[in-house]
Design a protein around this nucleic acid. Sequence first.
RNA 1: CGGGGAAUUGCGCAGCUUGGUAGCGCGCUUGCUUUGGGAGCAAGAGGUCAUGGGUUCAAAUCCCAUUUCCCCGACCA
Length: 476
Amino acid sequence: MAKNKFIAKKSEDLAKWYTDVCLKAELMSYARAKGFIVYRPDSYALWEEIQNYFNPRIKKLGVRNVYLPTLIPVSLLNKEKEFVEGFAPECAVVTKASNKDLTEPLVVRPTSECLFSDHFKDIVHSYNDLPVKYNQWCSVVRWEKTTRPFLRGAEFLWQEGHTLHLDEYEAREFALTILRLYNDLGRDLLAIPFVTGSKPSSEKFAGADTTYTIEALMPDGQALQCGTTHYLGTGFPEGFDIKYLGKDNTLHYPHYTSWGFSTRLLGALIMVHGDDNGLVLPPKIAPTQAIIIPIKAEDNKEVKETCEKVKDILIKNNIRAEVDFSNKTPGWKFSQYEMKGVPLRIEIGPKDLENNSCTLSIRYDESKRQVSLNNIETTIKELLEEIHKGMYNKALEYLNSHIYECRTYDEIKEVLTSHKGFVKMMSTLESEDEIKMKEDFQATPRVIPFNQQPFSDTDPLSGKKCDTVVYYARAY
RNA sequence: CGGGGAAUUGCGCAGCUUGGUAGCGCGCUUGCUUUGGGAGCAAGAGGUCAUGGGUUCAAAUCCCAUUUCCCCGACCA
């Protein structure tokens, strides 16, 4: 396959490669305000596919979509102490409207726990009102100092779920159920494997009792938090005075969960699968799964008609297929759709028609094959499945082979200074450990994996006895 | 917030040192020839030179300030 001259090499300059792909694959452009981007049709379509996957699945769990305001009165924000301390520094605040100073400044939501809590106070009175399960699709604003398209922006799109439950057990179970759903989304739609587990207390959401996370590994060995679910306990209900009368005829605070993933998933998708020729999309999420390229169609009616026919057959079989009849040369089209990551290209030309076949070119492994036009829909359906599995397994193999069990300081140093990936180590989870890891290697404890298989009983940093497995890494 | 780089047509860039008619490549439009890995020829269209101020007869070019973007750090769920 011809190499793309418009995109930096992924292995040579990942940062440049990443921005090149975002721009050249027409996913985004920079907007006028600092840190803000335009989500162009090709990236917004990916976000819509994520919504299409996620919406029916949360609805099945009894979650309903709602929409709450963009602006939060400052006084509401101040009701949960830890939360304010965590978020205040990165909030944008509206102080003027109609050319007059507002009596109370309004904060542009960085997340909506306060708004949901304020509303929940009005609708929850009895145990019969529980559980409450809401979700909203919206954007939030966080005034980040360093921004990168999709991975970290001043404004990003996300879903935020907010639920109230009778007790801790039910709430925790729900937070874990959603986390499993996030993990499924990675595996079944994005072809991205995650390490799942809980966050050490230093990395928890401001105000959370427990934060559960899905962490992915990027090609430079840095971890990327791709979604979190929180068991928030009763802090927000206490701060906002949300109470219900239980069966026992006494008042109780309900138990709160919140959970979210953002358009950062698109950043992960680009990073994990992309190559030197640009974006590579897994078939399940690709807005166009198969692009048909006619060869010498101008003066060949048969080529044209076959392209149309194949497209119709594929669409009838729920395959997202398109045909490009534009007068660009085939070579141009090949490069263009490769850059945009279309998983499968179908070439149809006079030579193919001679033996009733077409040429398939697979984006992710750069392979080509000639197949019969008979039962083309079955061939392609199976092939798309195969591609998805292939991409997931490739990513899984990368993840697994970049988790290093470390028993000594020197082993930790080796992994983190050469950007290899996750350090899997035994830890006491004491803050001295974290400080040392941060100072020596800029690494943070990413996740305490659910899959705990202690391989030693000693913390390599302090030498103290311990029984918890922790993954450390540098993070985005 | 620190350190570095940059802003000239849709994109990539030259011009700036030494002030004097706004240039090139790609893309775009039209026509013909092409079409199995970014086609060829010809003719065209397209620019408040990031913004604001200053110096000058004259500023893309010199001076001051501001804004934005990119990279590396620090900060950040």
